[in-house]
Simulated scan of single mutants.
Amino acid sequence: MTATTLDDVERFDAAVARADVDAALSVVQDLLDGGLDPVGVMVDVIAPVQTRVGRRWQSGAWSVAQEHAATSVAVSALEAVARATQPQGRARGRVVIACAEREWHAVPAMIVAGALRTQGWQTMLLGASTPTARLSRYLQDLGPDVTAVSCSVAAGLPNARGFIEASTTAGIPVLAGGAAFGPDSLRADRLGATAWAADARGAAAAIEGLPLVVPAVPPLPGDLTREVAALRTAHDAVVDEALRRTGVAPAAVDGEDPMRESLDQAVHSVAGAVLTDDPRLLGDTAGWVSDVLRARGFDDPDAAVRDALVHAMREYPRAATMVGDHWPDVAPRSA
Protein backbone atom coordinates (compact mmCIF):
# COMPACT_ATOMS: atom_id res chain seq x y z
CA MET A 1 0.00 0.00 0.00
CA THR A 2 1.37 3.39 -0.97
CA ALA A 3 0.64 6.94 0.09
CA THR A 4 -0.50 9.83 -2.06
CA THR A 5 1.81 12.71 -2.88
CA LEU A 6 1.13 16.33 -3.70
CA ASP A 7 2.11 15.54 -7.28
CA ASP A 8 -0.68 12.95 -7.50
CA VAL A 9 -3.22 15.53 -6.39
CA GLU A 10 -1.84 18.15 -8.78
CA ARG A 11 -1.95 15.76 -11.74
CA PHE A 12 -5.56 14.90 -11.04
CA ASP A 13 -6.41 18.56 -10.44
CA ALA A 14 -4.90 19.55 -13.78
CA ALA A 15 -6.97 16.93 -15.59
CA VAL A 16 -10.15 18.03 -13.81
CA ALA A 17 -9.45 21.69 -14.56
CA ARG A 18 -9.18 20.83 -18.27
CA ALA A 19 -12.32 18.66 -18.04
CA ASP A 20 -10.14 15.89 -19.49
CA VAL A 21 -11.80 12.63 -18.50
CA ASP A 22 -9.18 10.40 -20.13
CA ALA A 23 -6.33 12.12 -18.31
CA ALA A 24 -8.18 11.93 -14.98
CA LEU A 25 -8.89 8.23 -15.44
CA SER A 26 -5.22 7.67 -16.33
CA VAL A 27 -4.13 9.29 -13.05
CA VAL A 28 -6.55 7.15 -11.08
CA GLN A 29 -5.47 3.96 -12.82
CA ASP A 30 -1.79 4.77 -12.25
CA LEU A 31 -2.46 5.20 -8.54
CA LEU A 32 -4.39 1.94 -8.28
CA ASP A 33 -1.72 0.07 -10.28
CA GLY A 34 0.91 1.57 -8.00
CA GLY A 35 -0.70 0.01 -4.96
CA LEU A 36 -2.75 2.88 -3.51
CA ASP A 37 -5.91 1.49 -1.96
CA PRO A 38 -9.21 2.67 -3.50
CA VAL A 39 -10.22 4.58 -0.36
CA GLY A 40 -6.96 6.51 -0.55
CA VAL A 41 -7.63 7.43 -4.18
CA MET A 42 -11.12 8.67 -3.31
CA VAL A 43 -10.39 10.41 -0.02
CA ASP A 44 -6.87 11.74 -0.56
CA VAL A 45 -6.95 12.62 -4.27
CA ILE A 46 -10.46 13.00 -5.69
CA ALA A 47 -12.09 14.58 -2.61
CA PRO A 48 -9.57 17.41 -2.06
CA VAL A 49 -9.61 18.29 -5.75
CA GLN A 50 -13.40 18.44 -5.66
CA THR A 51 -13.10 20.85 -2.74
CA ARG A 52 -10.86 23.03 -4.91
CA VAL A 53 -13.49 22.93 -7.66
CA GLY A 54 -16.11 24.35 -5.30
CA ARG A 55 -13.78 27.07 -4.06
CA ARG A 56 -12.95 28.15 -7.60
CA TRP A 57 -16.62 28.79 -8.28
CA GLN A 58 -17.04 30.42 -4.88
CA SER A 59 -14.15 32.81 -5.55
CA GLY A 60 -15.52 33.74 -8.97
CA ALA A 61 -12.55 32.18 -10.76
CA TRP A 62 -14.79 29.62 -12.48
CA SER A 63 -18.25 29.75 -14.01
CA VAL A 64 -21.05 27.36 -13.12
CA ALA A 65 -20.41 25.54 -16.40
CA GLN A 66 -16.75 25.00 -15.50
CA GLU A 67 -17.71 23.72 -12.07
CA HIS A 68 -20.21 21.27 -13.53
CA ALA A 69 -17.77 20.03 -16.15
CA ALA A 70 -15.09 19.46 -13.53
CA THR A 71 -17.53 17.64 -11.26
CA SER A 72 -18.55 15.32 -14.09
CA VAL A 73 -14.88 14.35 -14.45
CA ALA A 74 -14.66 13.61 -10.72
CA VAL A 75 -17.79 11.45 -10.96
CA SER A 76 -16.27 9.48 -13.84
CA ALA A 77 -13.12 8.93 -11.78
CA LEU A 78 -15.13 7.71 -8.79
CA GLU A 79 -17.04 5.30 -11.00
CA ALA A 80 -13.74 3.95 -12.31
CA VAL A 81 -12.48 3.40 -8.77
CA ALA A 82 -15.74 1.64 -7.88
CA ARG A 83 -15.33 -0.76 -10.80
CA ALA A 84 -11.83 -1.59 -9.61
CA THR A 85 -12.81 -2.03 -5.96
CA GLN A 86 -12.69 -5.49 -4.45
CA PRO A 87 -14.36 -5.98 -1.05
CA GLN A 88 -12.03 -6.89 1.78
CA GLY A 89 -12.81 -9.41 4.51
CA ARG A 90 -16.19 -10.95 5.25
CA ALA A 91 -19.44 -9.94 3.60
CA ARG A 92 -21.42 -7.41 5.62
CA GLY A 93 -24.96 -6.12 5.46
CA ARG A 94 -26.71 -3.66 3.17
CA VAL A 95 -26.49 0.12 3.40
CA VAL A 96 -28.79 2.60 1.66
CA ILE A 97 -26.93 5.88 1.04
CA ALA A 98 -28.75 9.03 0.02
CA CYS A 99 -28.37 12.79 -0.13
CA ALA A 100 -31.09 14.65 1.72
CA GLU A 101 -33.62 16.44 -0.45
CA ARG A 102 -32.24 19.82 -1.65
CA GLU A 103 -28.73 18.37 -1.40
CA TRP A 104 -27.40 18.22 -4.97
CA HIS A 105 -23.77 17.37 -4.17
CA ALA A 106 -23.59 13.62 -4.73
CA VAL A 107 -19.80 13.22 -4.80
CA PRO A 108 -19.36 12.88 -0.99
CA ALA A 109 -22.06 10.19 -0.90
CA MET A 110 -20.33 8.35 -3.76
CA ILE A 111 -17.07 8.40 -1.82
CA VAL A 112 -18.75 6.99 1.29
CA ALA A 113 -20.41 4.28 -0.80
CA GLY A 114 -17.04 3.31 -2.24
CA ALA A 115 -15.37 3.23 1.16
CA LEU A 116 -18.09 0.99 2.58
CA ARG A 117 -17.92 -1.38 -0.39
CA THR A 118 -14.23 -1.97 0.29
CA GLN A 119 -15.26 -3.22 3.75
CA GLY A 120 -17.69 -5.75 2.30
CA TRP A 121 -20.92 -3.78 2.63
CA GLN A 122 -23.53 -3.92 -0.12
CA THR A 123 -24.40 -0.32 -0.96
CA MET A 124 -27.41 1.18 -2.69
CA LEU A 125 -26.70 4.81 -3.66
CA LEU A 126 -29.92 6.72 -4.21
CA GLY A 127 -28.16 9.86 -5.41
CA ALA A 128 -28.68 13.59 -5.05
CA SER A 129 -31.74 15.26 -3.52
CA THR A 130 -33.62 12.12 -2.57
CA PRO A 131 -37.22 12.76 -1.45
CA THR A 132 -38.06 11.31 1.94
CA ALA A 133 -40.98 9.36 0.43
CA ARG A 134 -38.59 7.69 -2.01
CA LEU A 135 -36.24 6.75 0.80
CA SER A 136 -39.16 5.28 2.78
CA ARG A 137 -40.09 3.05 -0.15
CA TYR A 138 -36.52 1.78 -0.41
CA LEU A 139 -36.43 1.06 3.31
CA GLN A 140 -39.64 -0.96 3.03
CA ASP A 141 -38.61 -2.80 -0.13
CA LEU A 142 -34.96 -3.49 0.67
CA GLY A 143 -34.88 -3.69 4.46
CA PRO A 144 -31.29 -2.39 4.75
CA ASP A 145 -29.19 -2.72 7.86
CA VAL A 146 -28.14 0.95 7.86
CA THR A 147 -29.23 4.24 6.31
CA ALA A 148 -26.43 6.70 5.56
CA VAL A 149 -27.44 10.32 4.93
CA SER A 150 -25.08 12.81 3.26
CA CYS A 151 -25.64 16.55 3.59
CA SER A 152 -23.12 19.12 2.35
CA VAL A 153 -25.29 22.26 2.39
CA ALA A 154 -27.58 23.60 5.10
CA ALA A 155 -30.65 23.39 2.85
CA GLY A 156 -30.64 19.64 3.37
CA LEU A 157 -30.64 19.56 7.18
CA PRO A 158 -34.42 19.75 7.74
CA ASN A 159 -34.91 16.99 5.17
CA ALA A 160 -32.15 14.96 6.82
CA ARG A 161 -34.38 15.00 9.90
CA GLY A 162 -37.10 13.45 7.76
CA PHE A 163 -34.68 10.70 6.70
CA ILE A 164 -33.82 10.01 10.33
CA GLU A 165 -37.47 9.81 11.32
CA ALA A 166 -38.33 7.45 8.45
CA SER A 167 -35.36 5.19 9.08
CA THR A 168 -35.57 4.91 12.87
CA THR A 169 -39.33 4.36 12.70
CA ALA A 170 -38.41 1.21 10.76
CA GLY A 171 -35.82 0.34 13.42
CA ILE A 172 -32.89 1.08 11.08
CA PRO A 173 -29.89 3.00 12.46
CA VAL A 174 -28.75 6.18 10.71
CA LEU A 175 -25.18 7.26 9.99
CA ALA A 176 -24.95 10.99 9.20
CA GLY A 177 -22.14 12.95 7.61
CA GLY A 178 -21.22 15.80 5.32
CA ALA A 179 -20.13 19.42 5.70
CA ALA A 180 -23.59 20.65 6.72
CA PHE A 181 -23.46 18.51 9.84
CA GLY A 182 -20.41 20.46 10.96
CA PRO A 183 -17.08 19.49 12.51
CA ASP A 184 -18.51 17.30 15.26
CA SER A 185 -21.57 15.22 16.10
CA LEU A 186 -23.68 18.03 17.63
CA ARG A 187 -26.07 18.62 14.71
CA ALA A 188 -26.36 14.93 13.91
CA ASP A 189 -27.14 14.19 17.57
CA ARG A 190 -29.78 16.91 17.77
CA LEU A 191 -31.46 15.65 14.61
CA GLY A 192 -31.52 12.15 16.10
CA ALA A 193 -28.92 10.32 14.01
CA THR A 194 -27.54 7.13 15.51
CA ALA A 195 -23.94 8.09 14.67
CA TRP A 196 -21.91 10.75 12.87
CA ALA A 197 -18.74 10.51 10.78
CA ALA A 198 -16.39 13.26 9.68
CA ASP A 199 -15.38 11.59 6.41
CA ALA A 200 -15.49 8.33 4.46
CA ARG A 201 -12.85 6.63 6.57
CA GLY A 202 -14.76 7.67 9.68
CA ALA A 203 -17.96 6.29 8.17
CA ALA A 204 -16.31 2.93 7.53
CA ALA A 205 -15.22 2.83 11.19
CA ALA A 206 -18.46 4.18 12.70
CA ILE A 207 -20.71 1.73 10.90
CA GLU A 208 -19.03 -1.12 12.72
CA GLY A 209 -20.35 0.10 16.06
CA LEU A 210 -23.98 0.69 15.10
CA PRO A 211 -26.70 -1.29 16.88
CA LEU A 212 -28.72 -3.78 14.87
CA VAL A 213 -32.03 -2.12 15.74
CA VAL A 214 -32.85 1.35 17.08
CA PRO A 215 -35.99 2.92 18.54
CA ALA A 216 -37.88 5.61 16.68
CA VAL A 217 -36.31 9.02 17.24
CA PRO A 218 -38.36 11.12 19.68
CA PRO A 219 -40.19 14.15 18.25
CA LEU A 220 -38.57 17.57 18.36
CA PRO A 221 -40.32 20.32 20.36
CA GLY A 222 -43.55 21.32 18.65
CA ASP A 223 -42.99 25.08 18.74
CA LEU A 224 -39.59 24.64 17.13
CA THR A 225 -40.79 22.36 14.33
CA ARG A 226 -43.78 24.60 13.64
CA GLU A 227 -41.59 27.67 13.18
CA VAL A 228 -39.11 25.82 10.97
CA ALA A 229 -41.96 24.39 8.90
CA ALA A 230 -43.53 27.84 8.53
CA LEU A 231 -40.19 29.38 7.54
CA ARG A 232 -39.61 26.69 4.95
CA THR A 233 -43.10 27.14 3.52
CA ALA A 234 -42.54 30.90 3.23
CA HIS A 235 -38.95 30.47 2.03
CA ASP A 236 -39.31 32.17 -1.36
CA ALA A 237 -41.29 35.07 0.10
CA VAL A 238 -38.68 35.58 2.83
CA VAL A 239 -35.89 35.59 0.24
CA ASP A 240 -37.83 38.10 -1.88
CA GLU A 241 -38.33 40.37 1.11
CA ALA A 242 -34.68 40.15 2.09
CA LEU A 243 -33.64 40.96 -1.48
CA ARG A 244 -35.86 44.04 -1.51
CA ARG A 245 -34.33 45.11 1.79
CA THR A 246 -30.81 44.98 0.33
CA GLY A 247 -31.89 47.30 -2.48
CA VAL A 248 -30.16 45.07 -5.05
CA ALA A 249 -32.18 44.52 -8.23
CA PRO A 250 -32.33 40.93 -9.49
CA ALA A 251 -29.76 40.50 -12.24
CA ALA A 252 -28.58 37.19 -13.65
CA VAL A 253 -25.00 37.05 -14.89
CA ASP A 254 -23.68 33.84 -16.46
CA GLY A 255 -26.80 32.09 -15.25
CA GLU A 256 -26.34 33.42 -11.71
CA ASP A 257 -28.15 35.96 -9.56
CA PRO A 258 -25.52 36.22 -6.81
CA MET A 259 -27.49 38.16 -4.21
CA ARG A 260 -30.64 36.07 -4.54
CA GLU A 261 -28.67 32.82 -4.48
CA SER A 262 -26.74 33.97 -1.42
CA LEU A 263 -29.92 34.96 0.43
CA ASP A 264 -31.52 31.67 -0.58
CA GLN A 265 -28.68 29.73 1.04
CA ALA A 266 -28.71 32.05 4.05
CA VAL A 267 -32.41 31.45 4.76
CA HIS A 268 -31.91 27.70 4.45
CA SER A 269 -28.98 27.99 6.83
CA VAL A 270 -31.06 29.84 9.41
CA ALA A 271 -33.69 27.10 9.31
CA GLY A 272 -30.97 24.49 9.85
CA ALA A 273 -29.41 26.47 12.70
CA VAL A 274 -32.77 26.86 14.44
CA LEU A 275 -33.61 23.19 13.99
CA THR A 276 -30.27 22.04 15.44
CA ASP A 277 -29.84 24.95 17.87
CA ASP A 278 -26.30 25.40 16.56
CA PRO A 279 -25.48 29.02 15.65
CA ARG A 280 -22.07 28.01 14.29
CA LEU A 281 -23.86 27.17 11.07
CA LEU A 282 -24.60 30.87 10.56
CA GLY A 283 -20.94 31.83 10.85
CA ASP A 284 -19.99 29.22 8.26
CA THR A 285 -22.70 30.39 5.86
CA ALA A 286 -21.89 34.07 6.42
CA GLY A 287 -18.31 33.44 5.35
CA TRP A 288 -19.48 31.64 2.22
CA VAL A 289 -21.99 34.39 1.37
CA SER A 290 -19.38 37.10 1.89
CA ASP A 291 -16.88 35.33 -0.37
CA VAL A 292 -19.42 34.77 -3.13
CA LEU A 293 -20.71 38.36 -3.11
CA ARG A 294 -17.33 40.07 -2.82
CA ALA A 295 -15.98 37.97 -5.68
CA ARG A 296 -18.88 39.19 -7.81
CA GLY A 297 -18.40 42.88 -7.16
CA PHE A 298 -20.44 43.56 -4.01
CA ASP A 299 -18.62 45.85 -1.59
CA ASP A 300 -19.04 45.28 2.17
CA PRO A 301 -22.14 43.04 1.85
CA ASP A 302 -22.02 41.51 5.34
CA ALA A 303 -24.00 43.96 7.46
CA ALA A 304 -26.50 44.52 4.63
CA VAL A 305 -27.21 40.81 4.38
CA ARG A 306 -27.55 40.48 8.15
CA ASP A 307 -29.99 43.40 8.40
CA ALA A 308 -32.00 42.13 5.42
CA LEU A 309 -32.36 38.69 7.01
CA VAL A 310 -33.45 40.07 10.39
CA HIS A 311 -36.06 42.24 8.69
CA ALA A 312 -37.36 39.46 6.43
CA MET A 313 -37.63 37.01 9.36
CA ARG A 314 -39.34 39.34 11.80
CA GLU A 315 -42.40 37.06 11.93
CA TYR A 316 -40.24 34.09 12.93
CA PRO A 317 -38.94 34.86 16.43
CA ARG A 318 -36.43 32.02 16.81
CA ALA A 319 -34.98 32.67 13.38
CA ALA A 320 -34.81 36.46 13.77
CA THR A 321 -33.14 36.12 17.17
CA MET A 322 -30.66 33.57 15.83
CA VAL A 323 -29.65 35.89 13.00
CA GLY A 324 -29.56 39.01 15.18
CA ASP A 325 -27.35 37.31 17.74
CA HIS A 326 -25.08 35.23 15.54
CA TRP A 327 -24.87 36.50 11.94
CA PRO A 328 -21.66 38.57 11.90
CA ASP A 329 -21.57 42.17 10.72
CA VAL A 330 -18.19 41.37 9.21
CA ALA A 331 -18.12 37.77 8.04
CA PRO A 332 -14.95 35.69 8.27
CA ARG A 333 -13.36 34.47 5.08
CA SER A 334 -14.50 30.89 4.60
CA ALA A 335 -11.80 28.23 4.64
Rank of each mutant, 00 (worst) to 15 (best):
Q119R: 13
G120L: 01
Q122T: 13
T123R: 00
M124F: 07
M124H: 07
A128N: 09
A128W: 10
P131M: 01
P131V: 01
T132W: 03
T132A: 03
A133D: 15
A133V: 13
R134C: 04
L135F: 13
L135T: 14
L135D: 10
Y138A: 10
Y138W: 12
Y138V: 12
D141Q: 13
D141L: 05
D141P: 13
G143P: 12
G143E: 08
G143R: 06
D145N: 06
D145C: 02
D145Q: 04
V146I: 14
A148G: 15
A148P: 15
V149P: 15
V149K: 00
C151N: 11
S152L: 05
S152A: 12
V153E: 09
V153N: 08
G156P: 14
G156V: 07
G156H: 02
P158V: 07
N159I: 04
N159K: 00
A160E: 10
F163Y: 05
I164C: 07
E165V: 15
A166V: 05
A166R: 00
T169V: 04
T169Y: 06
G171M: 06
P173R: 00
P173G: 08
P173Q: 02
L175K: 06
A176M: 09
G177K: 02
G178W: 09
G178H: 10
A180G: 12
A180C: 05
L186I: 12
D189F: 06
R190L: 03
L191K: 06
L191Q: 12
G192W: 03
T194P: 13
A195M: 01
W196Y: 13
A197N: 14
A198F: 09
A198P: 14
D199C: 14
A200D: 02
R201G: 14
R201I: 10
A203H: 07
A203V: 01
A204W: 08
A204N: 01
A205M: 07
A206V: 05
L210V: 13
L210E: 15
L210Y: 08
P211D: 01
V213W: 13
V214I: 08
P215E: 09
V217M: 05
P218T: 06
L220Y: 12
P221Y: 10
P221E: 02
G222M: 02
G222R: 01
G222S: 07
